[in-house]
Each structure stands twice: as C-alpha cells, then as structure tokens.
Amino acid sequence: MLEIRNLHATVDGKEILKGINLTINPGEVHAIMGPNGSGKSTLSYVLSGRDGYEVTEGSVTFQGKDLLAMETEERAAEGVFLAFQYPVEIPGVSNTTFLKTALNAVRKHKGLPELDAMQFLKLIRAKAKALNMNDDMIKRAVNVGFSGGEKKRNDILQMAMLEPSFAILDETDSGLDIDALKLVADGVNSLRSPERSMLVITHYQRLLSYIVPDHVHVLAYGKIVRSGGKELALELEAKGYAEFGSPEAA
C-alpha cells in the first residue's frame, strides 16, 4: 500500500524529517507517536503534498506509484486522505458544494460516472446520519461556526464520502472531549476495512484506546526510533518520551 524509504524533508531550509522508513500494508492501522516537534505533522503534510515542505531525499511509493511526483489533489484522487489537526473554515462555500465538487473530482479521476444532485444528496445524508450530523451541519459553510468536535466529525464525513484507501489522521484527538472523541473514533472504526490502511498520528495514547492500531512507531527528532505492537503505546504512556533523547542526540 504505502512504502516510505529514507524520507528526508525540510521546512524553510531546516531538516525536519531525517530518514523515515515505513511500510504499511493494506488493512493495517499504524500509529505514529512522538514528542512535540518530532516531525509528526511534517510527515502528514509531506505525504499530502503541502507547499513549503520540500523532500530532499528518499521516496514514497503508494500503490506502486511515485506519490511525491503527484500534486495534492492527485494524491487525494488516488486515495490518500488527510484528516486535519485543525480543519479549515471556508466561509461562503457550503459543505454540500464542497463535498459534491470533491467527490465528483475523485470519481472522475477513477473513471466513475459523476453523481447528480439527487444521488449525491442521498449519499451524504446516509453518511452524515451515521456520524450523528444533521442537515443543518451539512448545508452550512465548511466548518464555519462548528465546534472542535463538529469540525473533526465533518472531516470524518469527508473521509466516509471519498472512501480513500489510505487515511492519515493528524492529531485527530486534539481539542476533543471524551464524548466527541468516542464519536469520531466510532466513525473512523466503521471505515476500517481489509482494503483501507490508516496512519494515526498522535501525541497521546488516549486515542489509541479507541482506534486500536496494529503497529505503533515512535517518531523522535525526524526518525522512527522504535516500533512495536499496540502495547508500545501503553508503555509510552507510562514512561513518556524521555528515553528517546533530545534533539542534539538525533
């Protein structure tokens, strides 16, 4: 599914990722944990193709294709989805217009017929209902006036609509209370399938009690310094990240 080899990346000339190696197979859920400033969000932006994140070395292969050669929208259309740490508010663009445009762009890329307004509406209503989102939320401007939890649910709704084969959840738990976290986790879990892989990026173990990973990796100062099973998350929760050293050691 996804193969990251010796990935180095800089932001504003400063090297943040210093040789990441990671293989994710279909259906697997991997968690990346690490202290603040370890490069977790940089990794998610590099994988989704954000401007300003420059890859200086290494490769990322997604379903046999060179992911790094693709534009952001092409990656999304190929099946890469980034659930944002801070979903963006877009005044004046309704959720429905946004999602219909996105869905039909992705469908077009896949060679599928575009959905008409009625087909789209039927689909979004069904998906929104499963996330406990009402009509009002789906017709409002994208994330405008949404609470933190509503914004995250809106991101998961987008994921449910676009049905990506690989999803990156970037600090999805940040800013959520326990009820909102459960709701979002339930949404994510319902999207787990043997064909869909996920990369869950988080600082805390808490989220991983709800979205249980197959593999856990520790990212510290630009490198994966340890990998293990789901029990590694519990160990980190108990011991903290201290043993993984300081930036100077990396």
């Binding site: 929208e73 999304a76 944002f84 987008q158």
Partner: peptide, 11 residues
C-alpha cells in the same frame, strides 16, 4: 483553504 480543498481532490 486552498490546500484544504485540494487535499480533498479538488483541482
């Protein structure tokens, strides 16, 4: 906002 839209597959 541009990145958000593009990250959802919108050219």
């Amino acid at each position: 906002a541009l990145f958000y839209l593009r990250a959802r597959g919108i050219p």
